Amino acid sequence: WKITIYDQENFQGKRMEFTSSCPNVSERSFDNVRSLKVESGAWIGYEHTSFCGQQFILERGEYPRWDAWSGSNAYHIERLMSFRPICSA
């Protein structure tokens, strides 16, 4: 599993790669995730830290803005603060 997060939209700004769970992006000096690329595996992104709040399934691909992973939710969530890989047995 591999995911790359960015602190600006369209894959700009600070970037960081992960191959395992991140319970709080702010502990990695990110205020928020504004864009991301899922390089391999599937991940679950969460609205809040500690894997809480609205969940987003993140499959392999590029997500240049928050609405790319938020989709058409009843209330739009511009925040992604934690994530972890989906492990299959």
Results as ranks from 00 to 15, higher is better:
Gly13Cys: 00
Arg34Asn: 03
Glu59Ile: 06
Asn32Cys: 14
Val38His: 03
Arg65Tyr: 07
Phe30Asn: 01
Ala89Leu: 07
Gln12Lys: 12
Glu39Leu: 12
Phe30Trp: 01
Arg84Pro: 00
Ser21Cys: 11
Val38Glu: 03
Trp43Ser: 01
Pro85Ser: 04
Val33Asn: 00
Ser35Tyr: 01
Asp67Tyr: 06
Ser40Val: 08
Val33Pro: 04
Arg60Ser: 12
Ser20Lys: 14
Glu62Ser: 13
Met81Leu: 08
Arg65His: 14
Ile44Lys: 04
Ser82Val: 00
Val38Cys: 01
Ser29Arg: 09
Glu59His: 10
Ile44Gly: 04
Thr4Gly: 02
Gly45Thr: 03
Asn32His: 14
Cys52Asn: 15
Ala42Asp: 12
Thr19His: 09
Arg79Pro: 07
Cys87Thr: 15
Glu17Ile: 10
Gly41Met: 02
Phe11Asn: 02
Ser88Arg: 13
Phe11Pro: 02
Ile57Asn: 09
Glu17Lys: 07
Ser35Pro: 02
Phe83Glu: 01
Val25Trp: 02
Cys87Asn: 15
Ser20Trp: 05
Pro85His: 04
Glu62Leu: 10
Gln12Tyr: 07
His48Glu: 15
Phe11His: 01
Glu39Ala: 12
Gly53Ala: 01
Asp31Pro: 08
Thr4Glu: 09
Arg15Gly: 11
Ser50Glu: 10
Lys2Phe: 06
Trp1Arg: 08
Ala74Phe: 11
Arg65Asp: 10
Ser21Asp: 13
Ile44Val: 11
Ser20Gly: 12
Gly61Pro: 04
Lys2Thr: 04
Trp1Thr: 12
Val33Ala: 09
Glu47Cys: 04
Ile57Met: 10
Trp69Asp: 06
Glu39Asn: 10
Cys52Asp: 10
Ile57Ala: 10
Cys87Ile: 11
Cys52Ser: 14
Phe11Thr: 00
Glu59Gln: 14
Phe11Ile: 01
Gln12Gly: 09
Glu62Cys: 10
Ser50Gly: 14
Trp1Ala: 10
Cys87Tyr: 13
Pro23His: 07
Glu62Thr: 07
Gln12Val: 09
Ser40Phe: 07
Asn10His: 12
Arg28Met: 10
Asn24Val: 02
Ile57Pro: 13
Ile57Gly: 04
Ala74Met: 13
Ile57Thr: 15
Phe51Ser: 02
Leu36Met: 07
Asn24Gln: 03
Gly13Gln: 02
Arg65Ser: 14
Ile86Ala: 12
Ser50Ile: 08
Phe83Leu: 04
Phe51Gly: 03
Ser50Trp: 06
Gly71His: 11
Pro64Val: 03
Phe56Pro: 00
Arg79Lys: 13
Arg60Val: 15
Val38Arg: 02
Leu58His: 03
Arg79Trp: 05
Phe11Glu: 01
Leu80Gln: 03
Pro64Trp: 05
Pro23Gln: 13
Val38Gly: 02
Cys52Thr: 15
Trp66His: 10
Lys37Ile: 15
Glu59Gly: 10
Ser70Gly: 12
Ile44Pro: 02
Met81Arg: 11
Ile86Phe: 13
Tyr46His: 02
Ser29Asn: 11
Gly61Asn: 00
Asn24Arg: 04
Asn73Met: 13
Pro85Gln: 06
Leu58Ser: 03
Ser72Pro: 12
Glu9Ser: 05
Glu62Asp: 11
Glu78Met: 10
Arg65Thr: 15
Ala89Pro: 15
Phe11Lys: 01
Ser29Met: 07
Glu59Thr: 07
Tyr6Gln: 00
Arg65Asn: 14
Glu47Arg: 04
